[in-house]
Design a binder for these strands. Structure first.
Lengths: 226, 226
DNA sequence: ACCTTACGCTACGAGCCGTAGCGTAACTGG
DNA sequence: CCAGTTACGCTACGGCTCGTAGCGTAAGGT
């Protein structure tokens, strides 16, 4: 199952892989998705254009892998002590990632292409999106252990809820940064986590929620669930 | 200020405008953003390619206007009687719009291009995004009139809050549909509005929130604000 | 040594881009 | 009615990118 076909012959140069992905990333920074060309990437990587096409079907797949590598470098989870602090942390981290010029220009583009190419969409999700989602799931798990969130019995409902929360967090950050084109700073993260934790009505009240940003666990659960 | 330069000479054919935008839309449906070409659009519209370039700087601007026209057709506000019902309505409406093949493939693409072209970004926001945002603002206004949401004194804080809510709503729907590639149906809209109204802890409890979907105003404000 | 696979290089047809140049069409003001 | 002004259709073009084919060579396995 692993490599039944490649046990003989000249092996693929892993160094070329690194060079190509690095060149793709550099080209994204300098040129952006729109003006990035396969020939340019090959030249930067010191590699023949044909070698690119032997490994990737085209620009889309290549860029997905390059962006996924960036995500791998930067994404990690951290226990910040409370659900609120965890949310603000993941929001800011994700925003930092999206502020990088290479991801900024590439992520939306590959998602756009994926709307017309289901295989590409699956690749984007498995290589990029699912890795972010894991961070959200881990934070959720921690909050449940702390007692800040109730444990859910029905596994189906729990999964739907996790998906919902993930779409809300990731979608909000992406929309703020790339559509509204405004910064995701600590202040915005505070407002967002307040909204997410306490809902619309509570979020409209300026006082009382901005001070206890990193406060002790178990303090901010108005419904007192579980 | 309005038309100081075009008072004389042959006027631009408004019919050509309609034909071009319609052809653009049709080409988006059939080919998608990636394979759409200016020459193809011109041929579909029965118009010379040069005419396209006389009116639009390129593919990006053309598609933005075409998508904006689709949004103009479909976006309208409706008072559904309660904040929850208004939220679910705007979510589903927006989702219907994003499910159209022409918007689905084009919206993310132009946003991606806009990350490297500030003028294009401004055009996207004024032609498309701000129109959606108005729907959210109107719904918020209605909720305040009903007493479901508190009136805010500080205009700056109110604006920040409105921006936040809009990014959360629009971003969540976009992410669900185009990144996670899963449907936005009535069930998802219910879960989302519950989360938005009552916050994380309350949304994790399956019972008690799904029944009062169209309930009377003033019922779901646990904090009892203002 | 022999087989197998990867690599670099060159060259190529195809397609699209965006513009220039020209003659013609439509509308306006004297 | 006649200039003046602007828009349109058409053709043609250089330039660029794509994706592939063909060839000789390099680097591993058996």
């Amino acid at each position: 199952m692993s490599p039944p076909s490649r046990r003989t012959g000249r092996p693929r140069s892993v160094e070329a892989d690194r060079a190509i992905l690095g060149a793709t990333r550099a080209a994204l920074v300098e040129l952006g998705w729109g003006k990035l060309t396969m020939g340019d990437v090959a030249a930067r990587a010191g590699v023949a254009k044909t070698t690119l096409y032997r490994r990737w079907a085209g620009k889309n797949e290549l860029v997905v892998d390059a962006v996924a590598a960036v995500f791998d470098e930067h994404l990690m989870s951290a226990d910040c002590g409370s659900l609120r602090a965890d949310i603000e942390n993941v929001v800011v981290r994700f925003a930092e990632l999206l502020e990088l010029p290479e991801t900024k220009t590439a992520l939306m583009a590959v998602v756009a292409e994926a709307t017309q190419d289901e295989a590409l969409g699956a690749r984007v999700r498995s290589a990029i999106v699912d890795r972010q989602k894991r961070l959200v799931l881990i934070g959720r798990e921690r909050a449940q252990l702390r007692g800040e969130l109730p444990r859910e019995e029905d596994p189906g409902a729990a999964a739907r809820n996790a998906d919902l929360i993930f779409d809300v967090i990731a979608g909000s950050v992406v929309h703020r940064l790339l559509v509204s084109a405004e910064p995701v700073d600590a202040e915005w993260a505070q407002g967002f986590s307040t909204l997410l934790l306490q809902g619309l009505a509570a979020a409209a009240q300026p006082g009382g929620t901005t001070e206890n940003g990193g406060g002790g666990p178990g303090g901010q659960n108005p419904a007192g669930s579980v």
